[in-house]
Design a protein around this nucleic acid. Sequence first.
DNA 1: GGTAGAAAGTGGCACAGACCACTTGCTCCG
DNA 2: CGGAGCAAGTGGTCTGTGCCACTTTCTACC
Lengths: 253, 253
Amino acid sequence: MGEAILKRERVRDHLLELIETHPAGAPIPAERVLCQQLSVSRPTVRSAVEELVNTGLLVRQHGRGTFVNRAKITQEMVSGTGSMSLPQASGTWESRVLEHARIPAGARVGRRLHLSPAAEIHYIARLRLVDGEPMALEYLHVPAVLAPSLTLHDMESGDFYERLREHGVHVSEAVQSIEPTVTNESEASLLGVPVLAPALLFERLTTDAEGRHVEYVHSIYRGDRYRIVSRLTLGESPQSTVDVQARVGNDPF
Amino acid sequence: MGEAILKRERVRDHLLELIETHPAGAPIPAERVLCQQLSVSRPTVRSAVEELVNTGLLVRQHGRGTFVNRAKITQEMVSGTGSMSLPQASGTWESRVLEHARIPAGARVGRRLHLSPAAEIHYIARLRLVDGEPMALEYLHVPAVLAPSLTLHDMESGDFYERLREHGVHVSEAVQSIEPTVTNESEASLLGVPVLAPALLFERLTTDAEGRHVEYVHSIYRGDRYRIVSRLTLGESPQSTVDVQARVGNDPF
DNA sequence: GGTAGAAAGTGGCACAGACCACTTGCTCCG
DNA sequence: CGGAGCAAGTGGTCTGTGCCACTTTCTACC
């Protein structure tokens, strides 16, 4: 196509622009209007919109229009960062930063983030507490190139993903693995549990709309206070809602 | 479209047919060929193919063709129903029944199944193996009233949910909790791992379309061979595909 | 005989247009 | 004033067509 620039991508970028500048729930121009504005055909517009609908940034409503997705729920889910694993239990969460630095990715993290081992990343280790009680250890790794000006405060506050958005990073997907483990000595002392106590090891790799790896998070959750609850419904696709709950003594059943 | 039957869906179903009957890696007919065969336009074919590519069933290769994808990854997960927590890893699964009986529910199980402690249930303890290697212990509890004539063979075979359907039970939903634990002595010896080894404790409560509790399953998975992998996408609801994978050494990342 | 190039076949992108289904708001009639 | 119905606007589906980019194969030239 003349240049290596695809029309669909141009439209998509235009839409991302709109999404950023519009509040959640706001309608975007009608497809036929976008066609004129951008001088492309409707199928082209539709395919771009469809892409963003699939990634959850837009919502289409037949006969009404297309809207910026609130996505508050999952937003915060992915956002509070650790928060995918954030229980909405009663308690209030706080974070205590244990360590922070701008360091080379290293082999292991580099592989996960698709970076060279020498590439710089923001690294933060923090302890997450509920009502003052240690609940989890979280180790964040974010490529420095994605957010050169990221400050410690940014990463501490919930504005983290806001900052990333300002840099053109639109979180769209995360792959998370969970496995059982037991605490080692340092984890045990930081979490205030015995050594070799059951725990959950989370690894999360977050990706943005353009397929770039945005963050790698490694965290350890106390096994005596957490359980993962998922609600599985039979359907065409194996989808389910997942939810990590604080165990407050009540049964989910 | 006149009828509620979409052409795209007709094409999609045709493709699913092909996918099932063709081995992994086999090419499917060219798009232009499919157009003629099914009497639809190419964009229609393309959109159907695209859907299946997105779900990972097909792979397109520019200039070469479109092929059946190996790795049905999330596929059969929900399908096998009971298998919601079943990895479809390469190996072949088998079950070895350790114990089976028709007994009173008791307080704990009764509470979960909403039965009186005296109500009878089918109880089965079984060891699940992959390629002969012990992987998990599973304890099933099914109210006897739902399937009075249930035989041991029924519960051993995959026909279990088929039998339930014959009794008017249509599984529709399951709530599953997962938590980390460590093996006790009997679990350790049955699974062939050390005592106090990391493990995953699954509890699943399945409900049918009428809201009746159909089964309560308690199972222990080896922590050294399993991880839970979930793919989270931004959307209105925090939905995700969940998948328990056998750990074969490869990273999901 | 070997290699370069053409040809055929594939998926990738984009267009213009037509019609359907749903929602909303307005108008007109009672 | 109120409600039924129409009309406009929106996304949803589908067609038929054209051209591009990539891959493979086969041909024809050297």
